[in-house]
Amino acid sequence: MVRNDTKPLRTAAGIALFLALILSAVTAWALIGSRGAGDAGMRIQTVLAEALALALLLCVLWLFLLVRGLADGRSAAEPKPTAAPAPAIQPAAPPKPIHTASEPGSEALMLLSLLQEKGRFVDFVMDDIAAYTNEQVGAAARVVHQGCREVIIEAFAPLPVAPIENARMTLEPGYDAGEFRLVGRVSASPPFTVKVTHKGWRARHVKLPRSIKADKIPENPIIVPAEVAA
């Protein structure tokens, strides 16, 4: 990975060095051409010095990358130490990353496909609800409830923030405003005496399925494929 990344960098450094050398040649030529003009000469000298300094810096960088590249190449070519006498079990493969970096939105898309696959969530939302009786909607809701519940519990294992609704409680100074959303007529400062109107939910864990491949999300991505029976 590292060597693959540095290769273009080395090329860029080489090109920059080349450009810097041309630049210094051009400015030197300009300097010679304008000999005698005091102020301008001073200015051009400064530019030349800067260009040379830059060239030197790039040169050093390029040399460094070159040397490192050679060293990498050598270490790759070096023979591996011979295997120890057959261990009881095969040596571990180099650990491969289990978590792949995913495209923004891909986890949300995956959760949505799960909710559809297990709980027919998209079917439920996209169906025309006005055309059916409450009984039909209710029967369908059971399907959605059973499947989506499984997905949500697996992914988040929700548990309440406040234990009992409609109970009174006191929020002491320094309470976590992320845990309790204060609504209604609020006095100037805590402690607040409040009634729990909704117990809130928190996730015991966040365990979302991950994408096997870190591909870009295509245009109009698939939520669930159309199913065709053979």
Binding site: R120, D123, F124, M126, D127, D128, I129, A131, Y132, Q136, V137, A139, A140, R142, V143, V144, Q146, E227
Partner: peptide
Amino acid sequence: PISIPSRGSSLFAGTL
């Protein structure tokens, strides 16, 4: 109670 969805996308019409 048990609900069995149909295979198609219409959940309201096809659920038993």
